[in-house]
C-alpha cells in the first residue's frame, strides 16, 4: 500500500522578508570583513617595509661592528689590557719600593715598633695582593689574545650572519603574508558573490 499512499507534500520554500533582512545583515558583515581585510593588506605593506628597513639597518650595524673590531677595537682592547697590566706592574714596583723605604725609615727611627711592624706587615700583604692581581691580569691578557678576541670576533660574525638571515627571512615570508592577506580578501569577495547568486535564485523562485 505504500505505492498508493498519498505523498506528504513538502512545504514550498518561501523567501520571506525576514530572510531578506537576514541576508542583508550577512552581506553587511561580509562587506565590513572585506574592508577590514583590505585595510590590513595596506598596513601589512607598510609594516613589511619598516621591518625590512630595520633588518637592513641591523645588518649594516652588525657589519660595521665586525669591521670596527677587526680593523681597530681588537687592537685597542689588547693595548688597553696591556696598559692595565703595566699599571699593576708599576703598582707592585711602587708597593715594593714603599715597603723598602718604610722599612728603612722605621729601622732608622726605632720608634713605635708595634705600629711599625703592623704597618710593614700590611705593606707586605699589599705586595702579595698586588702580585696576585698581576698574575690574574697577565692571565686575562693571555686569555684575551688566545681566545677572548677570537670569541668576540666569532660573536660579531654570528651577529652579521643572523642579521643577514633575518633579512632573507623577511624577504621570503613577506610575500607569503601578502598572498595570505590577498587570499582572505578574495575569499570574502567570493562569499559575497555566492550570497548574491543565492539571493537571485531565491527571488526568482518566489516570482514563479
Amino acid at each position: 500500500m505504500a505505492d498508493n499512499a498519498i505523498p506528504v507534500q513538502e512545504p514550498e520554500e518561501h523567501y520571506s522578508e525576514e530572510d531578506a533582512a537576514w541576508e542583508a545583515a550577512q552581506r553587511r558583515g561580509l562587506e565590513r570583513d572585506l574592508a577590514l581585510a583590505k585595510a590590513h593588506l595596506g598596513l601589512l605593506g607598510v609594516s613589511q617595509e619598516a621591518e625590512l628597513l630595520d633588518a637592513f639597518d641591523a645588518l649594516e650595524s652588525a657589519r660595521e661592528m665586525h669591521q670596527a673590531f677587526t680593523s681597530h677595537e681588537n687592537r685597542a682592547e689588547t693595548r688597553m689590557r696591556e696598559l692595565e697590566l703595566m699599571e699593576i706592574r708599576e703598582s707592585l714596583l711602587f708597593a715594593e719600593e714603599e715597603r723598602e723605604q718604610l722599612g728603612l725609615m722605621y729601622e732608622q727611627n726605632g720608634l713605635a715598633e708595634a705600629t711599625a711592624q703592623l704597618v710593614l706587615s700590611r705593606a707586605d700583604r699589599q705586595i702579595e695582593r698586588t702580585k696576585l692581581s698581576l698574575e690574574i691580569q697577565e692571565e686575562a691578557l693571555e686569555f684575551w689574545k688566545l681566545i677572548g678576541s677570537r670569541q668576540q670576533l666569532r660573536e660579531l660574525e654570528r651577529e652579521v650572519r643572523a642579521a643577514e638571515m633575518q633579512v632573507r627571512l623577511l624577504q621570503a615570508t613577506q610575500p607569503v603574508e601578502t598572498m595570505e592577506a590577498e587570499h582572505e580578501i578574495m575569499a570574502i569577495e567570493e562569499e559575497i558573490a555566492g550570497m548574491e547568486r543565492e539571493q537571485v535564485m531565491l527571488m526568482d523562485g518566489d516570482s514563479h
Binding site: 725609615m105 722605621y106 720608634l111 705600629t115 711599625a116 703592623l118 704597618v119
Partner: peptide, 19 residues
C-alpha cells in the same frame, strides 16, 4: 709615629701610636 712625625687622625692603621 714610626715615621717620626705627628698628625691628627689615625688614617689607616688604628694603632695605639698612629701611623
Amino acid at each position: 709615629t714610626p715615621s717620626g712625625g705627628w698628625a691628627y687622625y689615625d688614617m689607616e692603621q688604628t694603632t695605639v701610636v698612629p701611623q
